[in-house]
Nucleic acid binder design. Sequence first.
DNA 1: TGGGTCAATAATAGCGCTACGATTAATTTG
DNA 2: CAAATTAATCGTAGCGCTATTATTGACCCA
Lengths: 346, 346
Amino acid sequence: MDNTMRKPPRNRRKMQSVTMSDVAELANVSPSTVSLFLRKPEAVSATASQAISRAIDKLNYVPNLMAGGLAAASSRAVSILVPSVRNAFFAETVSSMQTALKKQRLQLILGHTEYDEQEEEELVRMALSWAPAAVVLTGLSHSAATRRLLANVAIPVIEIWELGGPQIDTAIGFHHDQVGVAAAEHLIGQGRRNLLFLGARMHQDRRAKQRCDGFLQAARAAGIAAKVVEHPDTASAEIGSMLLSEALRLHPDTDGIACSNDHIALGALFACERQKIAVPDRLAVVGFGDLSFSAACNPPLTTIRPSGDLIGREAARLIEAHLHGEKTDGPRQIDTRFTLQHRRSS
Amino acid sequence: MDNTMRKPPRNRRKMQSVTMSDVAELANVSPSTVSLFLRKPEAVSATASQAISRAIDKLNYVPNLMAGGLAAASSRAVSILVPSVRNAFFAETVSSMQTALKKQRLQLILGHTEYDEQEEEELVRMALSWAPAAVVLTGLSHSAATRRLLANVAIPVIEIWELGGPQIDTAIGFHHDQVGVAAAEHLIGQGRRNLLFLGARMHQDRRAKQRCDGFLQAARAAGIAAKVVEHPDTASAEIGSMLLSEALRLHPDTDGIACSNDHIALGALFACERQKIAVPDRLAVVGFGDLSFSAACNPPLTTIRPSGDLIGREAARLIEAHLHGEKTDGPRQIDTRFTLQHRRSS
DNA sequence: TGGGTCAATAATAGCGCTACGATTAATTTG
DNA sequence: CAAATTAATCGTAGCGCTATTATTGACCCA
């Protein structure tokens, strides 16, 4: 008996059922070749390719992205941080982005900032620990620490849904103040002179505030002192109804209103109907968002339609380009614009 | 000069700026202790803890979750697959789940199946390659391969938003046919006898179909042959309006309708208003979803409210429990119920 | 006072994969 | 026909971390 150098029992580790080596063994090639096949199939001979894919099928092999990401120092994840996916605007962007990224086999890691910069900072930290292929944030306003965290990363940092402020890397969106301007100019063009803005949650939602500011400014430029009536909570039809009633109580001669979004506008229309206020004869209403109900309501709502899914697609396109090694030449800005849908409410 | 054994220059690798070893060095402890501190702070002495957290702050250290996940054979990611986050129901669940999981420092990886089992299968495969802490799917109907992929994983597999079929592991949701039953019984209780169901996308949305079926069955049980009018596209107010017009053309004596969801119901209300059909006097309307506008419209909509955010919270709770080592004793089922909100439309 | 216990820390051995250079085989060309 | 090129494949050395075992020192009590 050789009790010389008796080794203690090896310590056990957790493991994955089927690894790349298993595939390699079954396919009679080296693990390197399997890896190469998975990453650049065109660099592997037809015979080897065939053997490998057969082995993969047979073993039901699922590659371990953690191991791959660790070795390659970057993962196939894209982190996207939005205020909330409950908000139809961001849901649209997230959805279109996920669809576009799927083709690149990139996965979306989702985070909700709830309009809180502190929360966002924490989420950015968590996001970065995945070594993502890109980070997507909402808006241009972030904490100093967030900015610092993202300043020197080698991956694309994309800020969406806002344009017109200092940006970290690339921004994709539009100018919200211009939305307000467009709404005001439209109402003025329709002959309205007593303008009012109905806003929700504007202390938190910077972009709603910008739309409001643009509206006021354009009115002022036309010699009109537009009013504002607002509510601190999240936009909803219910709040829209309340706001409209309050607005008409405070400013009974109002003849044109713009709303921070279509939920508010819808609520305003409901209130008008209940109070027998003729829209648009007595009061013109303009919304923002062109949500699913906006063309169907009574009367159909004039609204400004942002391009939420274009934003997502453009972001995905940029990320893809970066992945394929295209140069990102300094801070870029993509204006996805918006369009005014003129319907019968104005 | 020792030119014996001249080594070729080591090949360079990509890297992370600050690693755990850097922290350990600065804090004058071993990397093991830093790792321990990060995972079980209570097992590390106060002095060491202090030194380590100081070092982490100073270096702005962000742990690499890929490395951690690889070593631990499981990641801090939870994969959630829903038809689409554009759908307010799933947005709600995703949102509440993300909020709950955030406390456990778990991240959500999102995928959209678009009601396609093949797509779902591919997404499950991608999801598993992250070695997630749990997988959440929508509904109980999946491809055979999906089922096979998930059958033997050691993590929780949670199916949400549907109950009443064969489940993989745990299901959290409610019985959609019971929703249909509740709607029918409510309308019958209100004295309606000429019932009709307005449905959208029912060939793809199994759960909408189940609600419809439950409705028809309950009507039949009461001796009523309820009608169905449907549209293949995604539910929207516009389609709701169209469907209502068509329904009344085909079945002019209808006096009670249930809708596959509140978008459809809202559109139906809009159409009624335009066509001067008195709701509820001439026609009672019941929706499903209790969406943000449902209490505010004219008349306020009677609807069945599912518990989308409870589903998300329960799922998060289960995942958390599993993470803390609690036993999952066989297939489980959590019925989150629904409630009928009786408002003036019926 | 000496073994036993416990708390705190450290050393070790991978997790599964990719990147890089090295090797071999196949093909071209002066 | 040898040298040079190209195509295909392989071997090696980690990526940054965790889990496990080993080690250290402090404290206890008979």
